[in-house]
Design a protein around this nucleic acid. Structure first.
Lengths: 346, 346
DNA sequence: CCCCGGATAGAAAGCGCTTGCTATGGTGCT
DNA sequence: AGCACCATAGCAAGCGCTTTCTATCCGGGG
């Protein structure tokens, strides 16, 4: 029915072994023979059987990319960058690899399940993006899984997530804490003293680090940590909108709002506008990440730029073994304060 | 080294066949035996070898999703919706499937290469999103490939792309032409007569259909087709910005701009603002797609909403055989005009 | 009391490919 | 000429799993 290696071999009058070697190109084959084989492949429209090949060779060309939400540009950008580096079609690298983008929805269970699925497929490498969940039990299970993956020869790179010590996984972390601190310092410098903070989902490292940075800055200025002006929620526009409304109710005198990320900040801006507050004249707003649409917001959003594409590309190269891993297997990538129109003097 | 089925069998004191049956659950196994097997699986931390399994069973649980640009929310939303339906971890369906999101970058070659890769993996199904390229040669090659995939039992669903007749692929198309017509009609109704049009990349069905809709509306109103006020470019903000600048130079008196999609529209808005034109007082702007950020733009964007998530979810269900395909294998999904603040009277 | 059939479990034959080892010619040296 | 050696090509043994066919054990009906 379907064409197999043996069919090609028969047609080219060589042994299956030779066909395999032509296709894999890792063994000397006379030019004339190669020619003949390739012609046969073409004539028969032969397509290699991936599973059979992976089974025999005990490796596969699948690379997993775990993201929290593929519909969120934050992850989309990273996924795209990883993929462009792993040498899929059109990538700059050699062999053709298939990127498997897995949407965990931020759920720890799915994260684990996907890793098992990738382990099952004997994935060549795995890149995990996004912050980790701060739950000891899950962390232990995850680390055990990472350990098993690296033991089995799968390269694991964490991108935008804290290191997982002793697991053999390389980590490229964003300096969320430093970014958060810088951002709030900027606001303090503008004279703001009553600052609302819309944090991300609880129990996530990213959320905690950004919030800690915020409080570091507050503390350094001798201000209270503003816990009563801190709200939590998912990284979406609705959260920003609802939280801003709430914040305004709790503290009508606030002059600035820091959001967990740009999407949330935009939601907050909408709520402020609806409440009749001008930005930044009445209330300053700041985001985080510098997603592509942030520069086009009105007013343009002050934020902390994270080099998502660069970091993810680097993660991809490390996963492919095309770039040496950072010393200690861990690197911290700084964010950069980008001041635009959404923040002004208090 | 690694644990195999045979190891589990030995430990559970049964044959490998029995273990396989317990794991696949498609053959009666006594409860006590199953128990014993599952315990052994657990104790040994056994993970099925995917390639071996796929080889023996001649099927795999991979599902391919082809997108033009994973960093673009338009595709991210569709990819996420498909994935949630194919029954990956957390999905509502049964067996665990791995979604493979492939980034073609809009390149025909990569599209073909990815399809070959998926064919190689014996993918269970493939969902292809985004418009097609209008090149006879490529179309022929693509159709041949689709044909081969469906012949091999891979279900193929096109989502947001015109049908590929005779290939066995199901198509869920967006009514881009109708949407484009409605949008321009709206502008005409507001009294606009000089309308700039920033179209998508040339040679793509989506671009052509939206543009045709625009011209349909113009023609119906007895107006010239405005070819000299039509510019082409990729679906990104830079295109919108540059094109708007250009349009303003060519025709300072224009009162409206229709953009190929919302991202482009936002870029155009930025350019207009920089040029000192107020929206919509001086110039009205309209987009297409109704991406999540469009409602938060200032002013909020008038656009044509495409039910991306719904359509993609349906495509996913059809790909999984959980929903019957539309009659004739083709369905057209309408867009919906959403009037917001960015358009007003001329 | 024996035979038949349902319910389980096992044996074994692949699935299509890779790769270590072996076989076979030529080549270049001595 | 004779021999050692490369360069190629083929053989054949798996890789770990699925699945068909067969074997076994039981209980019940004749």
């Amino acid at each position: 029915m379907t064409v197999t290696l043996a069919d090609v071999a028969a047609r080219a009058q060589v042994s299956p072994a030779t066909v395999s070697r032509v296709l894999n190109g890792n063994y000397p084959v006379a030019a004339a023979t190669r020619e003949r084989v390739l012609r046969a492949v073409d004539e028969l429209d032969y397509v290699l059987n991936g599973p059979a090949s992976s089974l025999a060779a005990a490796t596969s060309d699948l690379v997993g990319i775990l993201v929290n939400d593929i519909a969120d540009p934050f992850f989309g950008i990273m996924a795209g960058a990883v993929q462009s580096e792993i040498g899929g079609p059109g990538g700059r690298a050699g062999g053709e690899r298939l990127a498997v983008v897995c949407n965990t929805g931020g759920s720890p269970e799915r994260e684990l399940t996907y890793l098992t699925l990738l382990q099952r497929q004997r994935a060549a490498a795995v890149v995990i993006t996004g912050g980790a969940i701060e739950d000891a039990e899950h962390a232990a299970a995850l680390n055990a899984k990472l350990q098993r993956l690296t033991d089995a020869g799968t390269r694991v790179v964490l991108c935008g997530r804290p290191p997982a010590p002793e697991t053999g996984a390389v980590a490229l972390s964003f300096d969320n804490r430093g970014g958060g601190r810088t951002l709030t310092q900027h606001l303090l410098l503008l004279g703001h003293r009553t600052i609302g903070y819309i944090a991300g989902p609880e129990e996530r490292t990213t959320t905690r680090h950004r919030l800690e940075g915020h409080r570091d800055a507050l503390a350094a200025a001798g201000l209270p940590n503003g816990a009563e002006l801190t709200l939590h929620g998912p990284y979406d526009r609705a959260t920003g909108h609802a939280a801003a409304v709430d914040l305004l109710r709790r503290e009508p005198a606030l002059t600035a709002i820091v959001a967990a990320n740009d999407t949330v900040a935009l939601g907050a801006c909408a709520a402020l506008r609806e409440a009749g507050r001008r930005i930044p004249d009445d209330v300053s707003v700041a985001g985080f990440d510098d997603l592509p649409f942030s520069v086009d917001a009105v007013p343009a959003l002050t934020t902390v730029r994270l080099p998502l594409a660069e970091a993810a590309a680097r993660a991809g190269r490390i996963a492919m073994g095309r770039e040496k891993e950072p010393s200690g297997g861990v690197a911290t990538i700084p964010g950069e304060l980008v001041v635009r129109g959404s923040t002004g003097r208090a």
